[in-house]
Nucleic acid binder design. Structure first.
Lengths: 202, 202
DNA sequence: CTAAACTTTCAGAATTTTCTGAAAGTTAGA
DNA sequence: TCTAACTTTCAGAAAATTCTGAAAGTTTAG
């Protein structure tokens, strides 16, 4: 199969980017290809389209399955395995975040916790522990936020964001609520989605 | 200089993790070392502590400076360059995010935009463009959120988080406020949402 | 059971990334 | 100016990662 130039540039670009997301170039290309393909592909089609070896494709598919990013399917009367991406784009992004958290952040947090249990032997170690505690707290806070964001229904989240309700805005409202009587102020109601007003000037 | 076991395990762990953040193992180690060190270090001390060549340290420092993660300083009567991390842990994390956005997300968005301007030549390309549009919108929305988070004063953000005010909770409140007046269920994107179901075989 | 059709594995090859250290470059002070 | 003290550069070496393809493994049909 010969890829159209449009699809080819997408696939190649994501190949390069893919390495930043935890897998290598070919795996990134394979996934990109599956995402933009309107029908399931089998391993040979992938190898052919990307000009890589059949063995490489097999390993890449295994990797993508371990990330739960693709799904296997079958076509009646055909013994080959076909593959499609699994879930919506949002779900896929979530899955990648989740997986990276498990593989990278969690072990780091656990290492930091272990070290922070030790008693510092001298001033240098005390100083180092202070820095580590900061990092630990930052990671913990950040992952907690991220996991809350992930729990939200994507449509809802998306709608809210498109509304121009930035975090800043939400926090202002929240603070108003907490600070005052819990009453709705007119200032906050019925906002038109004007998101341009509070962006920074550059 | 001989590192204490505690500091050594921190430094080594961050070396491994560092590669996920856009720089290589040694650069990660160097940065970790500077962060937990209670006094500025010069290039020779770093090379010595990490057992790497002087040249490698020079390149690593250059890299860290390009990320704006470290700062140079001097000790009177000493011609060597000394280095310390720059800014608070929060600021450093922000800087890494920012830098990665510039290097990875921005080029991707620009590529997607270019492709989306082209007229699809056939059904396959139309399908592919739909997927790309979803990715484009996701990236755009996410980076906008991220930039708003970054604009917040860290203390404020941290306080709010510690308050137990999760995003979900904030959104509930926000919706309560909006509920009366504005029609906010604006299906802004109008995207074909999750199309996974209309693929051929499953 | 066997054969055909397919998938996976993995040793070694190819490629990419990182590291070293000698040489070249820079700077400050005498 | 020159020299000593320091930093940077970069070609080639070393290390790590990725890829290939033949062989081994698996599954289904008959």
């Amino acid at each position: 199969m010969q890829l159209s130039p449009m699809i080819e540039s997408f696939v190649f670009h994501f190949g390069e980017m893919g390495s930043r997301w935890g897998f290598n170039r070919t795996v990134g290309q394979m996934y990109a290809l599956l995402v933009v393909s309107d029908k399931p592909l089998n391993a040979n089609q992938i190898a052919d389209a990307l000009n890589i070896s059949r063995g490489n494709v097999s390993m890449g598919l295994k990797e993508l399955q371990s990330w739960q990013l693709i799904q296997q399917s079958h076509i009646p009367g055909d013994r080959k395995d076909y593959f499609t991406p699994r879930g919506t784009i949002w779900e896929m992004a979530n899955r990648v975040f989740e997986e990276r958290r498990k593989r990278e952040v969690d072990p780091t947090l656990s290492m930091l916790r272990d070290i922070l249990l030790e008693a510092p032997a001298n001033d240098s170690e005390a100083y180092a522990q202070d820095r580590m505690r900061e990092i630990h707290d930052l990671l913990e806070t950040t992952t907690q936020w991220a996991s809350e964001l992930q729990r939200l229904n994507p449509d809802k989240l998306n709608t809210l964001m498109k509304l121009g309700a930035g975090v800043t805005r939400m926090m202002e409202i929240k603070e108003q609520l907490l600070g005052g009587s819990g009453k709705q102020t007119d200032k906050a109601t019925g906002q038109a989605p004007d998101n341009t007003s509070d962006r920074k000037s550059e």
